[in-house]
């Protein structure tokens, strides 16, 4: 391909297509831009613009409820992501490299987890956690963070398993066979060959789990106990009484953090030799 494809090709159909795509991408950013603008709102309510001010950012740092909610979200996110990544990576490797008759059943379980609406997870988990924690007297299940981690980990385990599996299925297992032929123990082959091969998928899966946990509103609002309010549940609760501009301020900070993390991941994946298209492929595997 030494023909240089200009961004705007000649045909009018292509021109229309280009315009549609640019409008769509711009459309995706509208509410984000609006939230960023409104994070500088001097008014009392988020929704009604009353002039420019940095006050929301000052208030954001002062309110203990906000600090606590963001703290709970970050803590839950890290634990849920680590847990989902560990369990999902092992499961994904097993599915790709050692599928047996069990694999079909396991895949059905994963599929069910990923198609079940979040609200069903929420209403199913709540009575179950109460049964475990109170009726069967296992007090760990009365801990807010534990409940949140359980709720957030379900979908993430399925996603990580799918991503890791599809990454390894795409790579032949010759390297692992060679390693075994050269007398590496199975554990060593796993650590030195299989895991490094799966690494880009593991990383993407872990990050996706973290983001999904930070995003989770419905399951969290059902299973949370007092004192373990996550950031989305805080917003959800404030929604009825009218949102304050500091909600937009925190969201803006989190948006900037997301950008930084995404840039970091893109960098890491690029160093491991993945093109942008294959990064998208890794992500869309879920």
């Amino acid at each position: 391909m030494n023909r240089r494809a200009p961004l705007l090709t000649r045909s009018p159909v292509d021109l229309v297509l280009t315009i549609i795509a640019i409008v769509v991408v711009a459309f995706l950013f509208v509410p984000i831009v609006v939230i960023v603008i409104h994070s500088f709102n001097a008014g009392r309510l988020l929704i009604a613009w009353q002039g420019f001010s940095f006050d929301p950012y000052v208030v954001m740092l002062q309110k203990p409820a906000i600090r606590s909610a963001v703290g709970v979200s970050l803590l839950t996110g890290v634990i849920a992501a680590v847990l989902a990544t560990l369990a999902g990576t092992l499961a994904g490797i097993a599915l790709a490299r050692r599928p047996g008759r069990w694999a079909a059943w396991f895949l059905i379980t994963l599929l069910l987890v990923s198609v079940t609406p979040e609200i069903v997870d929420a209403i199913a988990l709540l009575p179950w956690l109460v049964t475990l924690g109170i009726d069967w007297q296992m007090p760990v299940f009365n801990n807010g963070i534990v409940r949140l981690v359980i709720g957030h980990s379900l979908f993430s385990i399925a996603i990580v398993s799918f991503i890791v599996r599809s990454r390894l299925v795409g790579i032949e297992s010759q390297l692992e066979e060679a390693s075994a032929d050269l007398y590496a123990t199975p554990a060593r082959t796993f650590r030195r060959i299989t895991l490094p091969l799966a690494m880009p998928a593991v990383l993407t899966g872990g990050l996706l789990s973290f983001t999904l946990s930070l995003d989770n509103t419905i399951v969290s609002s059902f299973v949370a106990v007092s004192g373990s309010t996550t950031w989305p549940v805080y917003i959800w609760g404030a929604l009825r009484g009218g949102l304050k501009p500091e909600v937009a301020a925190v969201s803006t900070v989190m948006f900037v953090l997301t950008l930084l993390v995404l840039a970091l991941v893109a960098l890491v994946l690029r160093r491991s030799g993945d093109s942008a298209a294959s990064i998208a492929r890794t992500l869309a595997a879920g």
Partner: peptide
């Protein structure tokens, strides 16, 4: 791809509230 992915990785509830404002 990054431009499509960034909104997807931004909080769902917050994005929806953004439209409520609009």
């Amino acid at each position: 791809i990054a431009l499509v992915m960034i909104p997807y990785w931004t909080n769902f509830l917050v994005r929806t509230i953004g439209w409520q404002v609009v």
